[in-house]
Design a protein around this nucleic acid. Structure first.
Lengths: 122, 122
DNA sequence: CTTACAGTTAAACAATCTTGCAATTGTTTA
DNA sequence: TAAACAATTGCAAGATTGTTTAACTGTAAG
């Protein structure tokens, strides 16, 4: 990552552009796209509410729908978006499809975001 | 944090609705809105690139613009969005306006998101 | 096979967001 | 005060997103 504090001139950019930076650039480029896609998926109150339910354990679609008191297709759509970004994973069991957060990393991201918000608002 | 593996019944909902949950509901309601707003602000590749620059230290608008090789008004707009959600803060110093990440919490959120993406893509 | 239940998908419409360019504000220096 | 530089704002065009209703698929039970 760039070191902004050093090498700050009055005229030029403070962000040096050496080999290391250039090498990292491609990585960051792809990572930014991916990270932004995840953040975008989390960036909706309704989807986030849904994720908070999954934070407590896996759920099937109709359970989520009744917990959030919303029509089932709406929930299914949101889950589709979340699954498209691999924020949640699903598993069919008989008639039911169970959804869960994709991994611990996502779980932590959600928890951190909401906790930050809660601290702010407290 | 929730334990996903345990507490799953065959018939009933896995998400219990006891007093504790109900009490937390109002808090979560507001927190979701706020957290989603933050995530939404982070959910754009261009804004995230900008934030990665700030991750390394404060910068003025024209520095950011030249580092990202983009027109200054575009950067200013993005900063406005980010500041609107209190993801960044600004400080005027003479002709220049310096921007920085709002706090450590935001910094960690950004770093975690991008690191997750990098690991995924590695 | 048919009924009922669980979930997904499609299409249309509204709403929101992003961007680019031009004009404007604010700040310093001559 | 005028000129130059730094940054912000306004506005229109275009793209993305979210929501809703209805139709469709898949699965188990009668």
């Amino acid at each position: 990552m760039a070191n902004l504090d050093s090498g700050m001139n009055d005229d030029g950019p403070s962000c040096s552009e050496n080999d290391h930076e250039v090498r990292d650039f491609a990585v960051n480029e792809a990572s930014c796209e991916r990270a932004a896609a995840i953040f975008r998926a989390l960036g909706d109150p309704q989807r986030l509410r849904l994720l908070l339910i999954l934070e407590a354990g896996q759920c099937c679609v109709s359970e989520i729908a009744s917990a959030l008191n919303e029509p089932l297709p709406a929930i299914s759509q949101r889950l589709r978006v979340l699954k498209g970004e691999r924020v949640v994973k699903s598993r069919r069991e008989g008639k039911h499809v169970f959804y869960a957060l994709a991994d611990e990393h996502i779980s932590r991201l959600v928890a951190n975001g909401v906790m930050h918000a809660m601290e702010e608002l407290s």
